[in-house]
Design a protein around this nucleic acid. Sequence first.
RNA 1: GCCCCGGUGGUGUAGUGGUCUAUCAUAUGGGUCUGUCGAACCCAUGACCUGGGUUCAAAUCCCAGCCGGGGCGCCA
Length: 438
Amino acid sequence: MLTINISMRTHFTNQLNELPDGFNVTICGWVQDIRNLGNISFLILRDREGIAQVTLIKKEMGEDYYKKINGLNRESVICVNGKINKKTQSKLGLEIIPTKIDVLNEAETPLPMGIIDKVSVDIETRLNNRFIDLRKPEVFSLFRIESSISKGIRETLENEGFIEIHTPKIIATATEGGTNLFKVKYFENDAYLVQSPQLYKQIMMAAGFERVFEIAPAFRAEEHNTNRHLNEFVSIDIEMSFSTDDDAMNMLEKVIYNAIEKIKKDNVRDLKILNVEINLPERPFPRVKYDELLDYVNSKGIEMKFGEDFSSEALTLIGEKYKGFFFITRWPMEARAFYVMPCEDDPRYGRAFDLQFGEREITSGAQRNHIYSSLKENIIKKGLNPEDFKFYLDAFRYGMPPHAGWAIGLERFTMILTNSKNIREVTLFPRDRRRIIP
RNA sequence: GCCCCGGUGGUGUAGUGGUCUAUCAUAUGGGUCUGUCGAACCCAUGACCUGGGUUCAAAUCCCAGCCGGGGCGCCA
């Protein structure tokens, strides 16, 4: 049972059930609703854990006080001291008969948006008034689940010997290429926000840390306007030494499985509020080669050449065949970043993989190329300048072990598990093409 | 960046040239009611994104801007 010592409050609303009839408590929270019937009224108090009914009786409170409390605006913050009455007609099974009500902060009126109103609210309005939107239990539950996910992932990685690291988010230039970077002024120089900690976590392999992970924001200056992209998102990155792409995939399976197991255990109430059912995936996840899917897509009439990435249309088709988690493996080198390790048997392919959930991509990873000369060659092949990567390439010259890793988008993963339609739903204060406030 | 769509009270909507002094719900303010739990009932309040144009007449048609939604590309 959760126990938080806060001087004003003796209990959260969900703890009242276990207390005996007549027990004296103080509960604190927001005035969600007042139903006034004249000589009796019902005040619904909401806190983080639920709601409770406070029953106000005019005869017992006196006319003036009764009127004052009934006149409180919705969403005002109060503390109620009183006795539990279990012989109530309330559907909640108990009510509080107040002896003292402190008004700590009165809300203004009208509210920018309703919390329990029976009208839908646009996501735009909700995000503009996020602090109110987040008071809704079904919105709050998403973030409790997101919290469990990052906690669960962290637990698994720590058990597996990973060390949590923090790499810089402001860089001179030269990450992986491919995506646009946000430019920032750095005193007399230009600098950029990182798109990924990729190069740094690889350098940590040369540093001998063996296994590292980082949970941190990544920034991408892409002008996308979709339900699954953010310009700032939380990237969960790992890198592991003396490991192959298979080892990385196995680790990913374990991490995903444990996170889901944790949610099923710790977020029963949230899943119920959201009306979402999550099944533990079967392991191992299917591993499907790029070529196989390429053929499949072509056979279904979608034109796609070797080396191209799967289009949305193609992924929709693939998602109909593979519904849960599955890996796409053995990608063409030209479709992936320069740091991927080519396959020994055929260097046109690389030891890279994506983890999909149906049509949606949630992770990409690879065994990395740890051979200095070959890595440098691949940088040139991609049209990049090795000079720009000196700080990175040097780490491969004085003892770099073979290594592999992956990155998973926290919001994407949460979105999939909670069946959310828009990634903004599972981001507290999303940063997209237009939004930087709040 | 490209394509398509949209902007009406606090919130969500109806309304495609005149009968719009603009619909409905919700909210807000006031009132009735001692057991509500989406309380009920009565009364009231409150809106056509901005600028320009067409027209006798514009919420409605045209242009520009601003803001937003969906899709694509790209990706986590």
